[in-house]
Amino acid sequence: QDEGDNKNKPSLVPEGDLSVACDAVLNVWAKRGTRDAAERCEAILERMEYLRRKSSLDVHPTAYSFATVIKAWANAKDTDGSQRAERAEFILQQLTKNYQHGSKMIDHVVPPDTIVYNSVIDAWAKSNDPRSGNKGDVLLKQMLDLSSNTNTNRGGKTKNVSISSCRPDIITYNTVINCWSNSGHVNAAKQAERILQQMEKQSQEQNKKQNDKGTQNGNKNNKKHKNDNDDDVIVQPNRRTYNSVLKAYSKSSLP
């Protein structure tokens, strides 16, 4: 039908709720756990993006939209693990690119977040792909770069933008360690331990900054785990972190 034929017809869904309705449909498809369902989710996401750019309707992909499509690919059990991870990462990079080059206020472009990144890293960890360790490292570095002040093109203007919503958390680091552990790489165990040592070093540095700040403020009992910018939560290794590194060594052929 021509678009003009529908101008006077009442919508079954209130215009402001169209994105929510689309997200609900995405969620139904994602739960099927098949390649066909993941492809259907991706097609719906592309349609939402098209409507955001070309239509007067108030419909646009949300952070949940992207996370659901990534989940759909990660759960597509009838698809090779490497292909699942590659498609999940493609959706993530599309989200990141849209945010970096779009106009957040006008175009309803949403930023990537920690949950989305963790989902993609987990897809690589479960892929049994020999590239998974390196992939986890690259995605972790992206998160660190994006969550710090970086030169970003936003709406045609280059300026420093910090996307705090994609700051790595304990799940991020543990999952990257699992990426190495499951990669089958000859140096997987050493790489897993490197991530652990990186966490320990960062934790010590941030704790020192926090203690120094508490001393300067005359409050030595300050228990807030944040740095001078009051933004970066201290990520400390936990039992799972150490167990994951031990698991990596148990799988290795190192003496």
Score class of each variant (00 low, 15 high):
Glu200Met: 15
Tyr249Phe: 15
Lys71Pro: 03
Met48Trp: 03
Asp145Tyr: 03
Ser65Tyr: 05
Asn178Gln: 13
Arg84Ala: 07
Leu92Met: 07
Ser65Gly: 07
Trp29Phe: 15
Val20Ala: 15
Tyr64Leu: 13
Pro10Val: 06
Thr241Leu: 08
Ile44Glu: 02
Asp137Ile: 06
Ser244Gln: 12
Asp230Arg: 09
Thr215Val: 13
Ile195Tyr: 02
Ile115His: 14
Asp231Trp: 08
Ala38Gln: 01
Val176Cys: 04
Val120Pro: 03
Val245Asp: 02
Asn6Lys: 08
Asn243Glu: 15
Asp137Ser: 12
Asn217Met: 13
Val13Ile: 15
Gln191Asp: 12
Val28Asn: 11
Gly81Lys: 08
Gly33Asp: 03
Leu92His: 01
Asp122Ser: 14
His108Glu: 09
Ala43Lys: 07
Asp113Val: 01
Gln202Arg: 14
Pro168Arg: 01
Val116Lys: 04
Ser162Gly: 04
Asp145Gly: 00
Trp29Thr: 04
Arg167Pro: 00
Ser19Asp: 02
Pro255Gln: 09
Val186Asn: 15
Asp129Pro: 04
Ser165Gly: 04
Asp107Arg: 00
Lys7Thr: 08
Ser203His: 10
Ala67Ile: 11
Met143Ile: 03
Pro168Val: 02
Leu144Gln: 12
Ala24Val: 10
Asp228Trp: 08
Gly133Gln: 01
Cys179Leu: 04
Asp80Ala: 10
Ala192Glu: 04
Arg167Thr: 09
Asp228His: 10
Leu26Arg: 01
Pro112Met: 01
Thr34Ser: 12
Asp228Ala: 10
Ala67His: 11
Asp145Met: 06
Gly4Val: 07
Lys223Tyr: 09
Val25Pro: 01
Asp232Asn: 11
Leu95Ser: 05
Lys54Asp: 13
Ser65Asn: 07
Ala67Phe: 07
Asn128Gln: 13
Ala125Glu: 05
Ala21Ile: 02
Thr175Phe: 04
Val186His: 14
Pro111Arg: 08
Ala123Asp: 03
Gly218Ser: 08
Asn134Pro: 07
Leu18Glu: 10
Ala43Tyr: 02
Phe66His: 12
Trp180Glu: 03
Arg131Asn: 10
Asn219Cys: 08
Asn160Gln: 15
Leu51Asn: 11
Ser82Val: 12
Ile106Thr: 10
Trp180Gly: 03
Gln93Lys: 14
Val138Trp: 05
Lys135Cys: 03
Leu57Pro: 09
Val13Trp: 05
Trp29Lys: 12
Lys104Gln: 15
Ser162His: 09
Asp137His: 12
Ile121Met: 02
Lys159Gln: 14
Leu92Cys: 01
Met199Gln: 04
Lys226Gln: 11
Ser11Leu: 14
Lys126Ala: 05
Gln206Cys: 06
Phe90Gln: 15
Arg240Gln: 14
Ser132Asp: 08
Arg32Asn: 11
Gly155Leu: 07
Ile70Tyr: 03
Tyr173Thr: 02
Lys226Met: 13
Leu51Tyr: 10
Asn98Ser: 11
Asp145Pro: 00
Lys135Arg: 15
Thr150Met: 08
Ile234Met: 10
Glu15Lys: 01
Thr172Cys: 06
Arg40Val: 08
Tyr249Met: 04
Asn187Glu: 15
Asn98Leu: 07
Asn27Met: 06
Val20Arg: 13
Thr175Leu: 09
Met199Gly: 00
Trp180Arg: 06
Asn8Ile: 06
Leu196Ile: 01
Gly102His: 00
Val28Cys: 05
Leu45Trp: 01
Arg240Ser: 09
Ala30Arg: 06
Asp231Phe: 06
Thr241Phe: 06
Gly218Asn: 06
Thr152Gly: 01
